[in-house]
Simulated assay, not measured.
Amino acid sequence: MSAPTAARPVTAERTGRRIEEVLDRLAATGEGAAAAEELVRSLMELYGTALARVVELLDPAPGGPLAELLADDLVASLLVLHDLHPEDRDTRIARALDGVHDPRLEVVGFEEHSGTLRLRARAGGGCGCGSAGDAARAAETALAGLAPEVRAVDVETTPAGPTLLQIGTAPTGAR
């Protein structure tokens, strides 16, 4: 097996999509789909059991080895995949959205039945920060590995507040 290249690093999102594409292709052609799915389930069980042991052996103290692993997106996504991630859904959603680096986003709620995360984006006031659609795509990408229970992101935009004018003590250039 070859090592990942710097140009195409391994990510949970990319690998998950590739696995789904291969399984869909196998199901469409009927060539060994059942065997491939059994192989994937067996490998998942093996890796899941091994990861569970790793998590048990690590010190959960803040700043400890487990905290370092949780900070790694790829490792965290594997822990989520195997239902081993120690953080609850809301904490994982907050962690993923912190990675979006958009201070305008705030969580409004999560709809369990549809898997829709509702976000509110305060209008950017012409700062060039991007649209609600951009924010939704960035959030979906960030959430893919850490919160797979989020199947859709709905971003509502609130209007920007009034523009504040700078009032000085002297006219411009009067100094």
Rank of each mutant, 00 (worst) to 15 (best):
S114N: 03
G128V: 10
L69D: 04
P65H: 13
A96K: 02
A7C: 01
R137H: 11
S77E: 06
P62G: 03
A132C: 13
P162L: 10
H85S: 08
R175L: 14
L43I: 14
A28W: 05
D83Q: 14
L84T: 02
R118N: 09
E45W: 14
V107Y: 02
S77V: 06
V100C: 07
P171S: 08
L119C: 12
T172M: 08
A138M: 03
R53W: 08
G173R: 15
V150T: 06
A33I: 11
L43A: 15
E21V: 07
L23E: 10
A136R: 03
R151L: 11
E112P: 13
A7Y: 03
T163K: 10
L74Y: 09
M1S: 06
R104L: 05
P60A: 03
G133N: 05
R8H: 11
T169S: 14
Y47K: 04
R122E: 13
V153H: 07
T91L: 06
R18E: 14
L81C: 00
D98L: 06
L165T: 15
A96D: 02
A132K: 08
D102P: 01
M44V: 06
E56I: 01
L74T: 04
V150F: 08
S42H: 13
A3L: 15
R137T: 12
A152I: 00
T157F: 05
P159W: 09
G99W: 05
A135H: 04
A96S: 02
R18V: 11
A28R: 14
S42V: 11
D90G: 04
G168H: 08
T5D: 09
P4M: 09
A34M: 06
L117V: 05
G145A: 10
G125H: 09
R89L: 15
M44W: 10
V150C: 07
G32C: 13
L84N: 01
A3G: 00
E112M: 08
A94E: 12
L97E: 08
V40T: 12
G126P: 09
A123M: 02
G168K: 04
A12H: 15
R120Q: 12
L143V: 07
T169M: 09
V10N: 01
D98T: 05
A27T: 09
L81P: 00
A61R: 15
P171Y: 09
L81G: 07
P9M: 02
L23F: 03
G168T: 10
T11N: 05
G125Q: 07
L69C: 09
L165P: 00
G128A: 09
V153T: 08
D98C: 01
A152P: 00
P60Q: 02
L105S: 02
R17T: 13
G161L: 08
H101T: 12
A174C: 12
E111L: 09
R92K: 06
A96V: 03
T49G: 15
P60H: 02
V75H: 11
G168I: 02
T29R: 12
T141V: 06
M44F: 11
R92V: 04
V155Y: 01
R120C: 07
E87S: 13
L81R: 12
G133W: 02
V155K: 01
R137P: 00
R95L: 07
G109K: 05
D72T: 06
G64P: 06
L146C: 11
H82G: 03
A3P: 00
R41G: 00
G99T: 06
G128M: 10
T91N: 01
L146V: 11
T15S: 13
S2T: 11
E149S: 13
T5F: 04
